[in-house]
Design a protein around this nucleic acid. Structure first.
Lengths: 130, 130
DNA sequence: TTCATATTTTGATAGGTATCGAAATATGGA
DNA sequence: TCCATATTTCGATACCTATCAAAATATGAA
C-alpha cells in the first residue's frame, strides 16, 4: 500500500461521523446499507452525511452501488486489511519471537479465497477483491 | 476502547511525518529510538518533530522515557491493537463463517492483547508485509 | 408529464492543523 | 561554574476541514 493511500484512509477515519459510518458498515457485512438508513441511524443531516460518505469513498474505504432510488454503501475490507498491514509492516524487525503479526477481517463473500487462507501472508500473495 | 481515543489515534496517524515516525517505531520494536535519531532519519526539523511526537504521545500511540540527554520514544503496541479491534469490532455481525477477526502485533515484552482477538492463524509466527 | 423520494452539490461560515525560526529548558561533562 | 548537546515551547503564518441551508439531480410511480 502506498503511503498517500494510507494517510487518506486514516484521515477519513479520524472523524466521528465517518468512523461511526465505517464501523456501522463493517458490522453490517458485505451487503452494506443505504445512505438514508445510515443517516437515520446516526442522526446526521443528509448533506453532511453525503460529504462524509464521499470522503470515505475517495479514501477507498467504502464502495457504493445504486439500487433504485437508494445508494447502498459497504465497507471495503481489503482496504482496511491493507491499511493495518501497512501500519504494522515488519513490526519488531520481523523478529518472530517478539511479535505475532496481523490478520484482519476478511468476509468470505468478498473473496474467492478458501477460509483457511485468512492471514497477512495470503493477503500479500493473493489478489482478491477491491 | 472509547471513541474519542480511537479518533485521537487515527488523527495522529493521518499525517505523513507522524505516520512515518510511528511506523519507524513499530519496526524498531519495544526498545524505541531517541528523538534525535528519528528526526535525523526522516529529515524533519526538531521543533516540527517535537510537535508531532507530542501529538502521538497525547494520542497514546507512543510513550517516552529520558535516557541521559536523549528522550527515547517507543510504539505502544497495545494502543494499536485496541484501535484495530475498535475499528473491526463485531465485523460482519460476528458471523464466524463470513469473517476472520483481527489480531495485531504483540511484542513479548508488552502485556497481552485480548484473547478473543486471537485465532489459530494469528498464532502462526511469521513476517508481516504490506 | 407531474409529483414525491433519495441523495448530492453549492456556497458561506467557523474552526482546526502544520510549519519552523527563535528562544527556552534540561542534562552531563570540563 | 560555564559550555555543548538534546529537546521542547512560543508565536506568527499559511493552509485545510466540518457543517448545513438551499438548490440541483436522479429515480420511480401516478
Amino acid at each position: 500500500m502506498k503511503k498517500e493511500k494510507a494517510i487518506a484512509a486514516l484521515a477519513a477515519l479520524a472523524q466521528e461521523s465517518r468512523l461511526d459510518v465505517f464501523r456501522m458498515l463493517v458490522q453490517s457485512g458485505p451487503d452494506g446499507l443505504p445512505a438514508g438508513e445510515i443517516g437515520a441511524r446516526l442522526g446526521v443531516p443528509s448533506p453532511t452525511l453525503s460529504f462524509h460518505l464521499n470522503h470515505l469513498k475517495h479514501a477507498a474505504l467504502v464502495s457504493c452501488r445504486r439500487d433504485s432510488r437508494s445508494i447502498i454503501y459497504s465497507a471495503d475490507y481489503k482496504a482496511m486489511n491493507d491499511l493495518i498491514s501497512y501500519m504494522m509492516e515488519n513490526c519488531c524487525r520481523g523478529d518472530a519471537n517478539q511479535c505475532a503479526p496481523v490478520a484482519a477481517c476478511k468476509p468470505a463473500r468478498e473473496t474467492n479465497v478458501k477460509p483457511r487462507l485468512r492471514n497477512a501472508e495470503s493477503e500479500k500473495r493473493g489478489k482478491v477483491n477491491a
